[in-house]
Design a protein around this nucleic acid. Sequence first.
DNA 1: GGCAAAATGATATTGCGTCTCAATCTCGCG
DNA 2: CGCGAGATTGAGACGCAATATCATTTTGCC
Lengths: 170, 170
Amino acid sequence: MDQPSLKAVLGQAQAFFSSKGLRFTKQREAVTTLIFRTQEHFRPEELCERLRKSDSSASRATIYRTILHLVESGMLREISLGGGERLYDPNFLKSPHHNHLVCVDCRKIVEFEDPNLDIMQNCITRRMGFSPTEKALRIEGRCDMLRLLGTCKNFNAAGKKGQRDKASKG
Amino acid sequence: MDQPSLKAVLGQAQAFFSSKGLRFTKQREAVTTLIFRTQEHFRPEELCERLRKSDSSASRATIYRTILHLVESGMLREISLGGGERLYDPNFLKSPHHNHLVCVDCRKIVEFEDPNLDIMQNCITRRMGFSPTEKALRIEGRCDMLRLLGTCKNFNAAGKKGQRDKASKG
DNA sequence: GGCAAAATGATATTGCGTCTCAATCTCGCG
DNA sequence: CGCGAGATTGAGACGCAATATCATTTTGCC
Ligand SMILES: [Mn+2]
Ligand SMILES: [Mn+2]
Ligand SMILES: [Zn+2]
Ligand SMILES: [Zn+2]
């Protein structure tokens, strides 16, 4: 279920570009590949850096432009996990309605879907006179370290769980 | 239910500041007053401008610092309504669990609470091994223009509903 | 008044995203 | 093949929000 088809994804991207009279250049392919190969949430600047380190290459401008195109195609979505930072999420392709759970201790991110939740959200929305087009639920919390021993990075750092904050990568 | 007590709010702020060994200066009071008098979502820069126009005054630095303090006090919350822009929300004081409905046509924002939704979110969160600390649900959609005639700004602009986008204030 | 801590505000700096524009690429056509 | 229109790229300039710095001012207290 991880990479069901990078090839298919590239095909879909190519189809979108050509449907718009745009070309699927090697730069755009490189960006698209990088995004959908690891399937992780990312910041644009971080993507630039990753691409710079790889063998392929594209300028910052091209990377930003490609991201916009992919968003327009529906293959990529902008999300927010707090802190005002702009993130992009390539996982709506395989999980079109997923939400996010973020551990405030170890910054672990868990994606989940729940049809019943969706139904309830839709009901409420309509009751208030709206037709929903997009929903984004983000839940912050603490992952249960004892039960999930080993998956919470902060638990591994034993005992001292006070120095995380936004040092999620420092 | 609108301004149940600006005075009480200022008292609460003052209490927080002094509990931290900080002073409730006239600048901080001016910022706090401005935030909680209109009770609207705001961007920091916009708050700066509003304060500049008023009779009171505070530097940008002080405004940003005061915002941080108020967030730490729990009286103010950072939210995201999409587009990656940082917004602050003073309304969690009177409605501690509210969510946001945003009309993609007219940018109207509606706040709502729903205890059942909260319960369901909590259940799901715990089922996944998390203890929830904060939840943020944002729903984008279209407000029903026919039914809500007069409240959807875009409907008033009769017929031509293509030129909004991010011109929510142009 | 005089001191130390806290607070302020002008300014510099950073980070991120957008814009501009000249150079390059691609494709179809004669 | 050689050309030209339109698309694409990339370097750099730019704009804006937010943060950091630091000298000056204010405050509470003795
Ligand atoms: Mn995701
Ligand atoms: Mn709100
Ligand atoms: Zn954790
Ligand atoms: Zn509307």
